[in-house]
Design a protein around this nucleic acid. Sequence first.
DNA 1: AATAATGTTTGTAATTTTGCGAACAACAAA
DNA 2: TTTGTTGTTCGCAAAATTACAAACATTATT
Lengths: 109, 109
Amino acid sequence: MAKLEITPEQERLARFAKAMGHPTRVAILHFLAQRNECFFGDIHEVLPVAKATVSQHLSELKEAGLIQGTIEPPKVKYCINAENWKLARQLFSQMLDDCCPSKKNSCCS
Amino acid sequence: MAKLEITPEQERLARFAKAMGHPTRVAILHFLAQRNECFFGDIHEVLPVAKATVSQHLSELKEAGLIQGTIEPPKVKYCINAENWKLARQLFSQMLDDCCPSKKNSCCS
DNA sequence: AATAATGTTTGTAATTTTGCGAACAACAAA
DNA sequence: TTTGTTGTTCGCAAAATTACAAACATTATT
């Protein structure tokens, strides 16, 4: 029993995925992914949620490593964490590309 | 305020991501992604969790559309849902590739 | 009909997530 | 020093997630 070990890479992928697992956070990432300037206010202004909630979502994205925040008094600038973003891309590709090759007898019909 | 609409695509992506947001489910997907035969028992046998829990994780992956199950009495065969898998690949690529282009002045330094 | 094998469903408990208003902290400007 | 701006943190409540054992359903086999 239990021959399968969950690898650190799988843990990391799950961590990224979990952070992306909410519509508002996807919207935030999408917003950040196509902008240079990105203050908290810019994000909050555009979302239909309370600022406390936005702050919380940002904090989760940050803890997952997908974004980073820099204090620029009196504002806070957020942006994609390029390094981890790249890693996320790799891990998701690894997972999603590595399936359903042109096997015969595959149940993935 | 609230000028940003959350698109159906973002909802879908979040749905996929949420399903992938747990180490055990990532492990299950990885397992399924490289196999043709994939009965419940094969999956359960290899994971360090109770069968009720495995069943629950499978059901969540199924509801998210990432896998599908077929009853083959007295067993149940699971496999990747190829069509939605492809969609997931597209959505994740769209999100992850579409960032941090070689902009000057990008905060993604 | 009784038994066995394979998974799902149910019931339960602990934990986590989500969302918001209100209070708070940090800094700039009047 | 007082006021205003910008975000974070706190406290709370509702809902969702996670995990398991036990009960159940379904189909084969004896």
